[in-house]
Structure formats: C-alpha cells, structure tokens
Amino acid sequence: MRQGLFGQVFKGAVMAAAGLAFVAGGALAKTELTVYTAVEAEDLKRYAEAFNEDYPDIEIKWVRDSTGIVTAKLLAEKNNPQADVVWGLAATSLLLMKGEGMLEPYAPEGLDKLDPKFRDKDNPPSWTGMDAWVASVCVNTVEANKNNLPTPTSWKDLTKPVYKGHVAMPNPNSSGTGFLDVSSWLQIFGEKGGWEFMDALHENISHYTHSGSKPCKQAAAGEVPIGVSFAFRGAKSKAAGAPLEIIVPKEGIGWDMEATAIIAGTGKLEAAKKLVDWSITEKANKLYNEGYAVVAIPGIAKPVKYFPEGITEAMIDNDFEFAANNRKAILAEWQKRYDGKSEPKN
C-alpha cells in the first residue's frame, strides 16, 4: 500500500513533468536553439539581440564556458548531443570534433565572401570562421613600476630573471588561449626552441590559470603584474579603468579562430542553418569587429579601441591542423614538463 501510493505519486509527477515540457514546447511558436559557445559572457546578449533582429522566431539558449570546457562537454556528449549549433569556439576544437564525425557539413549563404583562411577546406565546409582571437600580454603599469619591471617587448623578454614570479599564463590543458599560446610558440621557435622557451618562461611563471582571460583580469586587478592572455580581454579591462598596457611581442603572436558549426544529428537543422548563414553576414562580422580586430570577411574590420597597434601584422601563419592533430601530444608534454613541477616552492 505504501509502495502503491508512492509509486502513483511518482508516476504522476513524471507525467506532469512530461506534460509540462510538452506544453512549454508547444506554446512557444519560437524554435529554441541550444548554442554552445566560448564567446565572452558579456558579448552574448549583443550577439543574440542582433541575430533576433533578423530572425525573431529563433531563440538562442546559450551554453557558455571556457574553450576547454565547452570542447570537453561537446566531446562528452558525443553520443547524445545536447547542442544544436556551436557558435564561437576555437577552430582547433572544431577540427577535433570534425575528426569525431560530430559536425554537419554545410555551405552557408555568402560563403564565398569569406577569407579562405576562415573556412574549413572541405566542400561543403564543416565549419566557418568568425574572427581571429589574438594572444597578447597584459602589463599592469602601476604594479610593474612598483616592482621596477621594464616593459617587455618580446616573448623572449618574459624569460628574463627580472620577471621571476611576476607572470601568469593560462594552463593550456583547460584554456583555449593557453593552447594557442603554446602551439604558436612551437610554431614560432620550432619544436625544440619552443619547449626551451617554455622551460625558461616556466621559471618566471607565478601561476597558471584555468581560464584564458583570468591572467589579464588578474593583471588588471594587480594580483600579478604581467598576464599572458588575449588582446580583446586586455582592451576590455583597460576600458574598465585598469592601468594596463597591452603588449604585442615582436616575434609574432598566436591566434585561433572563433568559428561556427552545426552539430550533426540536430533536430533543428533549418534553424541551425539560418543561424550559421547569419553568423557569416557582414552585419555579424561588424559585430565581431567590436571586440576583434580581424574578422572573416576581408576589408570590413575597423580598428578596435584600446587595441595595440600592429596586432594584425603580428599574427603568425597558424597551422590549425597541426594544432588540432598534435593537441594531445602537446598537452601531454606540457603537463609532464610543468604540471608535475608544481609542488610547493618552499
């Protein structure tokens, strides 16, 4: 009798929940797209609003996290995808997903307008690019003065003993920014030179952060004088009033592309296609330009406020496939070298 009663209550609750979900789904004429993204939280509203100006019927449900986490989530859900679209995730991550057969190839309208660098080489492409997201170094001028630190101008500068304990950078294992830094150093300095550089840099690192924006935010807050991060974040913090200088190291800077793709097997393919179509429009590119100096459609980018000069020129010729295919090996090597040494220093 107890069981019976409880069983019925339970059954009732499940049915009610199911019913509610059904009603909720039916009542909204809007299509709801679950969009996974690594775009900065403060930009998501603007993106969605601009998109809804053109497609009011499609509602975007954001799932935002740092690059590593979104990538992990997508891979974890490989057999049971929750996302419909990925909008704003590192191209290296999307390449990984393509390798798992998780992306739906689609040639969006206006594909030909894009810089060929900003699309998957296959036809139809599995992903299309949005903008480039560029590494740079945030220096807190107040803290630097206090500690008598000269302003670094190159990556090699950061390995000088004077900066010992004054540099933070993201852990490439969890941060997309961290990974693009590491993969760019390996491309700039070569495999051997790259690791030698990182060995030297590691001596100066105060700590590795989990997210890519944190080193810059910490530099902005004075928790650390120098943060290896990305330009966009630095510009934002500078705008918020932080005494920051954003440095473009002269050897060149790593970058990754934020890109868009449809998750294979989505039940909302039509809406997903519309979103991807829109994501490469001029309007969208202009939106990206507010935070990123380089966008997918050539010739429309305007200089971004607080962005350091010469940033576009400094971008290295990035080999995404190298980065994606060697990701595993690079991360393992990085972890072996630097994560294992993280016992207390005293």
Partner: peptide, 15 residues
C-alpha cells in the same frame, strides 16, 4: 595539484 581538482582538470580541461 590535489586529487579533487585533478578530476576536474582531467575531465573538463583534457576531456
């Protein structure tokens, strides 16, 4: 590094 954070890093950071 401690164990609890390692789980997080292994799962979230390195998939």
């Amino acid at each position: 590094n401690v164990l609890a954070v390692d789980i997080y890093k292994q799962v979230i950071g390195q998939q």
